[in-house]
Every structure is written in structure tokens, then in C-alpha cells.
Simulated scan of single mutants.
Amino acid sequence: HYLVLDSDGNVVLRIVGGMRLPDFQYAVARALSPKTSLVGTEKLYQSGKRDKKTLANYLEALNLAHKNDQFKAVGKEYMAMLKPKEYSKEENWKVFTSWIPDRKSDNYKYLVEHKADFVKNVGAEKGNMFMEGLFYWDVLSYATAHKDYDAMDMAQLLNEMKKAELPDSCDSYSLYKVAQLRGTKKYSELLDYLKTQGKSLGVSKIYVDMSLNKIDGDEQTKNKVLAYLREEQKQYQGTHARRLEDLIRSMENTGGVEFADLTFDQALAKAAKTGKLVFMDCYTDWCVPCRHMAKEVFTLPQVGGYFNEHFVNLKMDMEKGEGVQIAKRYNIRAYPTMLVLDTKGNVLKTVLGARKAEELLQMVRVDKK
């Protein structure tokens, strides 16, 4: 997060996020003129100056500052001024793509039909990267088994990727192969593919590896998965290595706490349906006491026996995904923090810090009236 200030300390330009050197130089240079700085363009806009050039400069400043709501509002005005043939111009790329929420939008259809024009003006790399992003999460959801395999939907995804003329080298095609092997339960082929072609998945590979505990094969398949994960753990360092270590331990554990792969709301719903409470382990990747609890306490049969009988058990990283909002909701500031919740999400018990098994069992007990 970078600020360009005037001599009185007022923000002239705000730059959020990292970028390549030429782009960063370009961004900083925009602070030197009131026609392109955030303060200058905002004043022009508020004064009623709304020609295309002024709006384009204002949008660029808002985009650099990550003022997304304002960018969206001004972008709507700007888009209304453009003729369709102007959509593919490089200076309109950011605002045009901001109006493509998914592959069902009219602007996406226009992008596919006129891809050659966009590639000519903005470059193939930028165009393909954006288009792939519209497929990525759908394909990843199948590859990590967050969505139940649907052969017809998968075929439709492949057809749309080809229609979008995505290059064969894009991550989504590799993820598609993973999803296909996994969905058709060809687990041996899946593991072989991950061993030999895993690098083609890029940063997505850790997500796939971390989801392999959900494979529903026989004991022989489970052992193959564990053998694969043990080898893969050697290739990782830091947080990823620790996460894989915890995953392997949980898969080897036959009597410890069974943590459900559910969202917070799903956990509450399951608790209500089964007549249980919710136990939530609020942790972070960097928390050493959290890892101690995961390895030395939650794996114990006596702990698992009580917790699995009385709770829907949930682990949630407070710095990622849904955990960020959960941390705010329950004012979680120390780790580990362990909560016992009723089916409405109300806190019944709070346990701060690592605890021995006997102490933890005593602290989480709730007398049901």
C-alpha cells in the first residue's frame, strides 16, 4: 500500500497492491498532474466535468486505489458513453472487464465474439488470463471435490473453454484433467498425473493436494494417497509443508477429533439436525500452539471419542476465506481460541490457548437442560 503525499501530508495518489516496475512507474507518474492524480480527478468529477477523458483518468486513479464501489459507479457512466466498437481499446479494458461478473453476462459474450480485437489491443496474455479466471473457480471446485462431479456440466465447461480459445497451457485445462480423473474415480491415474504433471497446476496444486483426504476409496487407495502426500510434503516448505503434515496426521488418525469439511452455516445446520453443538477451533497457519493442539491433543482417542459424540467439529483459519469474518464476529484476537456454540451461533464456552487433553475435555463440557 503506497501513498503519494503533498507537502501538507494530504493523499494525492493511493496505490494498493504490488505490480511490475513499468506499471508502478506509470502509477506514480500519475500523481504529478492534477488531471491524473486521485485528488485532481476527484475534484474534476465533483465539479461536474464528465467527458470521456476526465472519467477515464478518474477511473484509473480509483482502480489504483482499489476504491471498488466508486469505480463501479463511475464505470457505469463511462460505459454508457462508449460505442461497442470502443470496448476493445486498451484504455477501456479495465472498466469493460469490471462489468463481466461471470460467463453469462452480455459483455462476456461480446468478449468471446470479438476476442481477436481485444488480443490485438491488450495482448493475448492479459486477455487469456482474464478469461481463464472466469472458468478457474468452477474447474477448481470439481478438482478439489467441493462440488459433486457432474459429467454434463464438465462437458459444458470444456466446450466453453475451447470456444473462448484458451491456450492449452492454461492452468484450467490441467485442473480439468484432475477433476475428470477424480470424478470418474480413477484414483491411481489421478495420483500418477499429479506426480508427473503436477507442476502444470501452478499454485493450484496445493489446493488439490490438501483436498485428497476427501477421496472415498478403499483402504488400499487411502494408503496410496498417504504415500503420495508424504512424498509431496518433502517438496514444500513453510506453511504448505505444515498444512500437509497436519493433513497426513489427520488421515492417519483413527480415533481423534473428526473435523467436518463444512462452512460455518453448514456446521450450524448439521448441529441442529443431529442434536449436537458446534466446536470450532479458531487457528492460524503461523500459530505454534495451534499446531501442537492439532498434532498432540485432537488426535487422542479420548478427545475424539467425546468430541465426535457431542459436537459438529469445525477448524477454521481466521486469516483466510470465511475465517476473516468469523474472527470479526467473535472478536478472535488470540490463537488458538476454541469455541463451543449452540445451533444459533451463540457462544456457550470459550477456551483460550493450548490445553492438555483432560483440561480441554473438562472446559468444553456443556450441561444440556
Rank of each mutant, 00 (worst) to 15 (best):
155 A>N: 15
264 F>R: 07
15 I>M: 02
117 D>Q: 13
279 F>K: 00
70 Q>C: 06
35 K>L: 14
344 K>L: 12
274 T>I: 09
215 I>F: 03
315 K>A: 01
242 R>S: 09
328 K>I: 01
324 V>N: 07
125 E>T: 15
178 V>E: 04
102 D>K: 04
294 A>Q: 04
3 L>F: 12
215 I>N: 03
260 A>N: 11
109 K>F: 00
96 F>I: 10
172 S>C: 15
8 D>H: 11
271 A>T: 05
327 A>G: 09
363 M>E: 06
8 D>P: 02
219 E>P: 02
268 L>A: 02
257 V>H: 00
17 G>Y: 08
218 D>I: 08
81 M>H: 14
185 K>Y: 14
65 A>Y: 01
213 N>R: 03
5 L>T: 13
14 R>V: 03
267 A>Y: 08
75 G>M: 07
31 A>L: 01
278 V>F: 00
217 G>L: 10
266 Q>S: 12
323 G>M: 07
7 S>Q: 13
151 A>P: 08
53 K>P: 02
167 P>F: 06
68 N>H: 06
302 Q>P: 06
200 S>N: 13
18 G>L: 15
148 D>S: 15
357 A>P: 03
192 D>L: 05
314 L>S: 02
19 M>K: 14
4 V>H: 11
17 G>A: 10
117 D>S: 09
90 E>R: 08
345 G>L: 02
67 K>I: 06
62 L>Q: 03
21 L>M: 11
369 K>S: 15
223 N>T: 14
126 K>D: 06
344 K>R: 15
124 A>M: 11
12 V>C: 05
40 G>Q: 02
172 S>G: 14
125 E>M: 14
302 Q>E: 13
158 L>M: 15
369 K>P: 15
267 A>M: 12
140 L>A: 04
190 L>N: 01
353 G>M: 08
99 W>H: 09
334 A>I: 05
364 V>T: 10
328 K>P: 04
293 M>L: 04
170 C>G: 06
252 E>W: 00
187 Y>K: 04
77 E>H: 05
297 V>K: 00
32 L>K: 13
275 G>M: 08
162 K>S: 10
126 K>N: 14
245 E>F: 10
102 D>H: 05
52 K>V: 09
205 K>T: 11
128 N>C: 13
11 V>K: 05
48 G>I: 08
56 A>I: 11
14 R>P: 00
217 G>S: 13
67 K>T: 03
193 Y>T: 06
101 P>S: 12
116 A>W: 03
361 L>F: 13
23 D>A: 13
273 K>G: 12
12 V>Q: 02
70 Q>L: 12
240 H>C: 11
134 L>E: 01
122 V>Y: 00
106 D>L: 13
82 L>G: 01
22 P>K: 09
71 F>L: 08
12 V>L: 04
245 E>N: 12
324 V>A: 08
279 F>Q: 00
303 V>P: 00
249 R>P: 05
369 K>Y: 15
123 G>N: 03
88 S>Y: 03
80 A>M: 14
142 Y>I: 00
197 Q>W: 02
114 H>E: 04
53 K>S: 12
68 N>Q: 04
356 K>I: 13
266 Q>I: 05
62 L>V: 09
305 G>N: 04
68 N>C: 05
191 L>W: 00
21 L>N: 10
304 G>P: 07
203 V>P: 11
34 P>D: 08
232 E>A: 11
164 A>G: 08
162 K>D: 07
15 I>W: 00
22 P>N: 10
78 Y>H: 09
369 K>N: 15
79 M>I: 07
